[in-house]
Design a protein around this nucleic acid. Sequence first.
RNA 1: AGGACCAUAGCUCAGUUGGUUAGAGCGCCACGUUGACAUCGUGGAGGUCGGCGGUUCAAAUCCGCCUGGUCCUACCA
Length: 948
Amino acid sequence: MDKTYQPEQIESRWYERWEADNRFAPSGEGMPYAIMIPPPNVTGSLHMGHAFQDTIMDTLIRWRRMQGHNTLWQVGTDHAGIATQMLVERKIAAEEGKTRFDLGREAFIDRVWEWKQESGGHITRQLRRMGASVDWSRERFTMDDGFYRAVQEVFVRLFEEDLIYRGKRLVNWDPTLHTAISDLEVENRDQQGHFWHFRYPLADGVTTDAGKEYLVVATTRPETLLGDTGVAVNPEDPRYASLVGKFVELPLVGRRIPVVADEHADMEKGSGCVKITPAHDFNDYEVGRRQDLPLINVFTQDAAILARAEAFDIQGRPLPDIDPTLPEAYAGLDRFEARQRIVADMEAAGLLEQVETVSNTLPYGDRSGDVIEPLLTDQWFVAVESLARPAIEAVETGEIQFVPKNYENMYFAWMRDLQDWCISRQLWWGHRIPAWYDNDGNVYVARSEAEAREKHDLPAEVALTQDEDVLDTWFSSGLWTFGTLGWPEQTPELATFHPSSVLVTGFDIIFFWVARMIMLTGKFMGEVPFKQVYVHGLVRDGQGQKMSKSKGNVLDPIDLIDGIDLETLVQKRTGSLMQPQKAQAIEKATRSEFPEGIEPHGTDALRFTFLSQATTGRDIKFDMGRLEGYRNFCNKLWNASRYVLMNAEGEDTGLGSEPVELSLADRWIVSRLQQTESQVTKALEEFRFDHASQALYDFVWNEYCDWYLELSKPVLWDEAASAEAKRGTRRTLVRVLEAILRLAHPMMPFITEEIWQRVAPLAGTRQGEGDSLMVQPWPQADDSRLDESATRDIEWLKGVIVAVRNIRAEMNIAPGKPLEVLLTKGSAEDARRLAANRPFLAKLAKLERVEWLDDPAQAPLSATQLVGEMEVLVPMADLIDKEAELARLAKEIDKQDKLIGGIEKKLGNESFVAKAPAAVVEKERGKLADFEASRRLLVEQRDKIAAL
RNA sequence: AGGACCAUAGCUCAGUUGGUUAGAGCGCCACGUUGACAUCGUGGAGGUCGGCGGUUCAAAUCCGCCUGGUCCUACCA
């Protein structure tokens, strides 16, 4: 083995080997355990969130695989409608100066497929780099033929059950992308805005109770005035009671619109009167429905003002009786321009009463960045009510469990207030809606045009055109758990692996995806899509900032693995920015944060870092320091293995029938191993990856390396040690390491496999050349191997060694200087332990001589430390700096006094003694005795030195 | 406005059902190259557990209020 750990070499090699050996496919034996990967965007690239998520899934899958489960990690990618279409549109625009309309639908879609072929392998390659043990043979893409069949089937069946309908509804419209988007794709941003108070003259000579000839309404959106179809007042409002049923004359337009009573109007706010624009505001739409007001749309699809408005009733039927004329002056104006003109015209007409500056929030499309417009359009919807009920129940009954549990509340809150789901998108890239229209506008929903004709008996002369729209991406991803397993066919995989075991996902897509999967899967499979949902937080940068290209704080997981030099990193972060003016600041920050670029750390270290930071339900501030620390941990494991191999390869490791003797240390480390195995297993069961990684780290570094390897040296290197003892220690070294590798493998697959290949033959666990750590049994703790007496003995030994080290440090004695040590005031047990551990003590504490002193009175002047009741003495003679030592002792005594004081106070409290459990009281008494003993020793020592 | 979550060492975080001398890693200080490892070893400094109040014999832990932060939902006519 090389002297230093070099991850890049071993990682790609092992992944290829595993894949070639078909290690990732289900074994076909054991209990099924399945995870469906949240499908990343096919043309996307791996970001920190993916890397984190993939690490968790892979750890679970590898762990369960080793436990003997029949594991399937289903892999695949998503076509990601809007995102991908926009990307290709931009690319074509940049390269050829053409729009998708120049190309036409078919040619454009061909181009998207081309782009998918070109770039679609990127993210899957990166997934491999992360070590993801997904079953590549089953890779799916949401636009595959098979998956499309599932999508069509679901659409058609839902339609046939009246759970899908088409209608003219108010939807979130993106004026840039020209498509409807869901509520969830809308991002609310705080803004400084204006609040205009307008006078709406009352018609027919009516006046208010206060004698005014107008009502005052306030709005942040004056341009929608053109579409007003009413003014609402609160039914309880005495000021306007007499006006309900009367009319106002809509300024600039001249339309007569009624004053209606509706609870939407808040008496406390403004004048108490609200203008109602049902076609351009979601609340007003509801008021319109309640009050039977017409809907008047005044916007084009670009959100510019129409020349002639479009009037509909609440069912979306045209209302020819309403005069659609709009003032010519505004026709074709963009909404924001129209706003200014309308405000100016109102002011000129003396109808502007007041302008307030207010802060409000505006809806933005999270893809386009444009202000979203509520717009009346024809769309397809899923009626969710009947689907939501069982979906809520599945979580209520615990059939699906969220981890951590508090996300269930978030889920319930959303599910109980669910609006019908708009599933049509005015895009080209996606699953085209399986609906056909004849020339009369009749709609036929079927799996194909042929089926539509057959079902509805339509002769060939009847021309049918397919709906232009495609489905919301989340409609298809909602079928992910069963669609990937071959549904609607009843495949063996579907029978075996559905429901899947656990979904690993970010809280940000609980609504987009998780909820919809539960609903659609419940409907079509009659069961839940997964039994548990592990919800993790967002990966943020070291300062807690969201990573984003525009902030220039993005870390690429691959760069953390392979390293990147500063110049390349700067270029990566500042290249092709939307706001190039930020480049300088980003460059500066990057140069100061990574003056040397980023070192390579390897996949295993990155994975271990993610796991160690995977704490429950909170965001992760990615810590470069920990990444380095865990890279060092890999190195530690590497070097410990080198030591073991150096001492075991070519030697007798106790596999044969020769007698074997286990030392105290051997028994101790085996005992501690059992505990570690329990801890790691328990932590994984609870999704506490931080605990699992911590337990492993502790055991490997602080016990196996720091103590056990050191304790093995006296046995292996001492000529006097017996062959049986050497065999026992070698065997323990090798077997414990082999168990460590199995325990660590799900978290750090590469380094463990590499080492295991060398170590396993010595432990007798490798079957042959082709064997892999991936399929070794998961370590199971054997409680019969817990050894408390060995543990106590080793703790004693560690205590004495640490005591001597302490004395060295305090007395400024060179670490290498051989010392003489006396032990005194101990029990027979202490004496026995000394006898049993003499060589270990000598080696680890660098002692020349260690003697038992029966009579404490004969102790020479010494530096002392306490181990239990026993004193550890290092005779100091004239080496002591009197003043310094007295000061140190005084400080120590003071510390003990405080501890003693605290406990005495406690024990002096009658209620404590009376009410606290006896065990607690006993424990306090024991502590008191300890502290007092320490104090006595310190005082004795002080007096001795003071007397010098 | 309502709700959720968070606040522990300079930094990133652990701390199961209340009883610990409050922990880890990184960073910091001192010392150290003998053959696993300087990507290391040994020792150390550093915290009134955000603030106030309450429950309790006992609170980092339970309850209330406050402050600060993150996020979600709603509103913003």
